[in-house]
């Protein structure tokens, strides 16, 4: 019964399993290390599970969560509005650049596309200069800013930086919308904004899922802008807090690993929440 086909199939699965193991090994090592005591991670190789009671502990998780809690909260306060608003603005811009006709739109589109290719590093200096020139607290009521000026600056920066890529993502999706359907809505008496609100927006759910996941992951994981723009320790976001778990003398690997998992959890949750729509959006379904 073991014909050549079966053997080939067996080989295929072996290769696939090897690739899965290779890909998951670091995650596995991180996860088991997070549950080890100091003796545990010093005495065993990283990917071996904690052996016995003296090597196993959940203390690292407790400590990591305690030290990251403020950062997690700050990150949520910063990343959620930044994600939602950059996606919404990108969607609006894409609608205006794709489904409406006006003079000079090609030039504007070129600017948006160029914005996608600007590396973070190249804007650091102008960005800090910009924020030191703009007195946010002086322009927005103090109650809104509160002690969160750094977070608001970071959020606005991410919105501005995210709009170009969001626009490009939405544009490719809106180009597939039935032109006649939008014309029908105009003939039905709807204004350009009403067409957006009642036709285009409800049909954008799959591409919103793609953009929200993409943007949230990007913004949540960003360290560079956060390091440069946020000086106030109370405004520290989770990536910066995670970076500080690294001790100066002793490396507490269990703490760092637990912290990394805690910091990564929200992006995973977002993916699970929007996963089905994400698949549709990537497949280009309308």
């Amino acid at each position: 019964m073991t014909g050549p086909v079966d053997r080939r199939r067996a080989a295929l699965y072996v290769v696939l399993l090897a690739m899965v193991a290779f890909y998951l090994a670091p995650l596995e090592a991180g996860l088991v290390t997070a549950f080890k005591t100091e003796t545990g991670f010093l005495r065993t190789t990283p990917f071996v599970p904690p052996l016995g009671a003296e090597q196993f502990t959940v203390d690292a998780w407790r400590t990591a969560f305690g030290r990251l809690r403020q950062g997690l909260l700050n990150s949520v306060l910063m990343a959620v509005p930044a994600t939602v608003l950059s996606a919404l603005f990108g969607s609006l811009a894409a609608y205006g650049l794709t489904n409406l006709e006006w003079r000079g739109q090609v030039g504007v589109l070129v600017l948006f596309v160029a914005g996608v290719f600007l590396p973070y590093q190249s804007v650091l200096v102008p960005l800090t200069q910009f924020w030191s020139a703009v007195d946010l607290a002086g322009r927005v009521p103090l109650a809104v800013v509160g002690g969160n000026e750094g977070l608001i600056q970071l959020s606005i920066t991410h919105i501005a930086y995210g709009v170009p890529i969001c626009t490009v993502l939405f544009r490719s999706y809106y180009a597939t919308l039935d032109e006649e359907m939008l014309e029908a809505a105009r003939l039905d008496g709807a204004s350009a904004l009403t067409v957006y609100r009642r036709i285009v927006l409800p049909l954008s759910v799959p591409i919103f899922a793609v953009t929200l996941i993409y943007q949230f992951t990007n913004i949540w994981n960003d360290l560079l802008f956060a390091l440069v723009l946020v000086n106030d320790p109370s405004n520290q976001v989770v990536t910066v807090a995670l970076n500080e778990l690294q001790g100066s003398f002793v490396n507490q690997y269990n703490l760092q690993m637990a912290g990394a998992f805690i910091a990564a959890l929200p992006t995973l949750v977002v993916y699970v929440l929007f996963g089905e729509q994400f698949a549709k959006g990537v497949a280009g379904e309308t």
Partner: peptide, 16 residues
């Protein structure tokens, strides 16, 4: 178009 009091039927039906 909205002010012309004209309704159109499209080839693709163009339903929402």
């Amino acid at each position: 178009p909205a002010q012309r009091d004209i309704a159109m039927v499209f080839q693709s039906y163009a339903l929402y």
